[in-house]
Design a protein around this nucleic acid. Structure first.
Lengths: 230, 230
DNA sequence: AAGAATTGTCACGCAACCGTCACATCGCGG
DNA sequence: CCGCGATGTGACGGTTGCGTGACAATTCTT
């Protein structure tokens, strides 16, 4: 899958200038970039790197963009990617008819860079649909990722975003002891410049909220190791 | 995982590759999928499973898509489904003929998957309330998609089109937290260059109207996540 | 054509939230 | 019982997310 959490965009175009332009703009927008000059390179890149979004020029030497698209979509890695066809032709009649591209989206030249970036973003978020989570339950505590609601014995508890994610991580695997580092990774993401003691503080706040209606402390401190639920 | 709540889409196409492709993409979009390779299978599936939406390829072996559509619409289960004809032809004449036989919508190849999904959703939206004849109701708020009317404790409220759709989206799944991005997708559709903060403004306006006659705020803000109804 | 309604964006302000520190407390080995 | 490192926790400054009034652009009505 994706190595870092920043999305990887594969740009396929045979014109070097075009490639450079798109590359520059998308990099500036915060994406990781990979490029390919023709269909063969593209297919190789897809297999090797598993991009999240593929910008595919309609006109390519050798294999047409259409054919490349079909082949991409027939691979495992390709199915997980959003393909955006980039076409110079705006005429409906010019489009190859009778052929289903399988593209997730298309964009017609001339287009603005802003629109392109917006399209890439839109397809990214469409690609990762709401990870239909089912409610977690440990003891008398319930956490519903869908409604973002935490209850204890029916009582609704109010948690901040970080505490919500923290509780979610802990509840996901009851009994498992998480090190502070693991929790930082899981809850805070790649914000590695954060003091591990911060975890203690948030665990403290979480405990306070969980205990506000009475009941046992559901979070176990494992001295020298970390925290666990249940 | 097969929630009876999630819409069932029947895909009718004689090309296996096409079938697999559509199947995959619509599954990823959160629908339940059923498939058929020809008209006979399609009619059987309609009768047995009562799909909500039927994607019907124009070109089929044996019976034409047109004829299949006619037959589907002549069955009880078929009348309650939205039929979307999928065709390589863009001719106006064909479109008219397609719609005359009872198809609810029409989409021409090549189309983007995003567009297809949008169409399926649009037809579902149009279909659901009419078929069930049910207005949405959350607490003391009623939204009737048929008459395009919103009331709270009997009082008729006046909403602009965007706020109406926004409220509809929120009410469709009470309790579910929608991210701003999801709401943009759902309410604003393909107008993708819209700032996510715009959602806040419209939620604000919606709230103002809903509260104009007194009562509790029915919209819950989930900090760092989005909005939910109820 | 003029007025009304609706829409998207922005700027400002407040409240919630966050990360860090300092100090209190605890647990464990000697 | 002592000492030391690990953990609990109240307080605090800084940041961020969100609510909202204002405004220009656009569309709908009349």
């Amino acid at each position: 899958m994706a190595d870092a959490d920043t999305p990887l965009v594969l740009i396929v175009d045979d014109e070097a200038a075009q490639l450079a332009l798109l590359s520059y703009n998308l990099k500036a927008a915060g994406f990781r970039i990979s490029t390919a000059k023709d269909g063969d390179e593209a297919l190789l890149a897809v297999a090797e790197q598993g991009p999240d979004v593929i910008l595919l020029d309609w006109m390519l030497p050798r294999l047409s963009g259409l054919e490349v698209c079909r082949q991409i979509k027939s691979t495992a890695a390709g199915r997980d990617a959003a393909v955006i066809m980039v076409s110079a032709r705006s005429e409906e009649a010019d489009r190859v008819r009778g052929l289903e591209t399988g593209a997730d989206d298309y964009i017609v030249k001339p287009y603005s860079v802003a629109e392109l970036i917006a399209r890439v973003r839109a397809n990214l978020r469409r690609l990762r649909p709401t990870a239909a989570g089912q409610a977690l339950e440990v003891g008398d505590i319930r956490l519903d990722p869908d409604t973002h609601r935490v209850t204890r014995q029916g009582q609704v508890l109010h948690l901040g975003p970080t505490e919500f994610r923290l509780l979610g991580a802990l509840m996901e695997r009851p009994g498992k002891v998480w090190t502070r580092e693991a929790l930082l990774d899981r809850v805070w993401g790649r914000e590695i410049y954060i003091d591990t003691r911060t975890v203690d503080v948030h665990v403290g706040r979480l405990r306070k909220t969980l205990l506000s209606q009475g009941g046992e402390d559901p979070i176990r401190t494992v001295r020298g190791a970390g925290y666990a639920m249940g």
